[in-house]
């Protein structure tokens, strides 16, 4: 989706501000949000949670920018728990289970053949190879995608074939296609000036990892 998370190349955010001796978590609640997000993972099985990234990206842009990183995670996690009925608004507000509410149970996956996000040992033909000239397709899906806007329509060169991965894109409701469309992921080199014109230094380059569906021959 074309919203604020896809911020590569934007101006106006000011300087990058590193912090000396930064703690891993600035506040106790940040660590709890991080840990809760990971610990509730198995409860999404069989409940068709919208994808993690889709849910983050669906936060309206004005709110997204006004929230801290772990506030976004908290919103993302509670959204998934609420839409799947694992908690209610009242429970979230009070911190106390609703009277008479049944204890949730872990479910088996609704799609036992579902592919994970990692490298797949599958024999899928590769459409491209190293040194091939490619163009990033001009795609604007309403769901989650890993093709950043700044490469769309731009030409680059395949540098490496990273192997076969399930496509992580979702539909406009945050769900991935059932077959996950396993395909090759390529490291594609874009000359910096192809992306940013004269603002970039000649000879510099941006390397972007792109699923085969995002590419066409140039």
């Amino acid at each position: 989706m074309n919203t604020i998370h896809d911020m590569g190349g934007m101006d106006g955010f000011g300087p990058v501000e590193p912090e000396e001796n930064e703690p891993v978590f600035h506040h106790r609640w940040e660590g709890r949000v991080y840990a809760l997000t990971r610990a509730v993972g198995p409860w999404g099985r069989g409940r068709e949670w919208p994808s993690f990234r889709y849910t983050l990206e669906s936060i309206p842009p004005v709110e997204y920018l006004s929230m801290s990183y772990y506030e976004r995670w908290f919103r993302m996690m509670t959204t998934r728990l609420l839409v799947s009925g694992l908690i209610s608004e009242t429970e979230l507000e009070t911190g106390y289970p609703d009277a008479g509410a049944p204890r949730p149970e872990l479910l088996p996956s609704s799609n036992p053949r579902s592919l994970g996000a990692g490298l797949l040992d599958m024999d899928v033909p590769a459409r491209f190879g190293p040194d091939d000239r490619v163009r990033a397709r001009n795609l604007h899906p309403r769901g989650h995608t890993r093709q950043p806007r700044y490469v769309r329509g731009r030409q680059g060169t395949v540098v490496e074939d990273y192997g076969v991965y399930a496509l992580q894109d979702t539909d406009e409701d945050g769900r991935r296609p059932l077959d996950r469309r396993p395909q090759h992921v390529y490291s594609v080199r874009f000359e910096a000036q192809e992306l940013w014109g004269e603002r970039a230094a000649a000879g510099d380059a941006i390397y972007v990892d792109l699923w085969e569906d995002y590419l066409e021959p140039a």
Partner: peptide, 30 residues
């Protein structure tokens, strides 16, 4: 901070997570 605490509390009481498991995750990355 309070909303996070309320969420942890309700998920613990519903048997979905344990605070000890969360402690381990936090400790791992800290």
């Amino acid at each position: 901070a309070l909303r996070v605490r309320a969420l942890e509390s309700v998920l613990v009481e519903k048997g979905m997570v344990t605070s000890a498991a969360l402690d381990v995750i936090v400790d791992t990355y800290e």
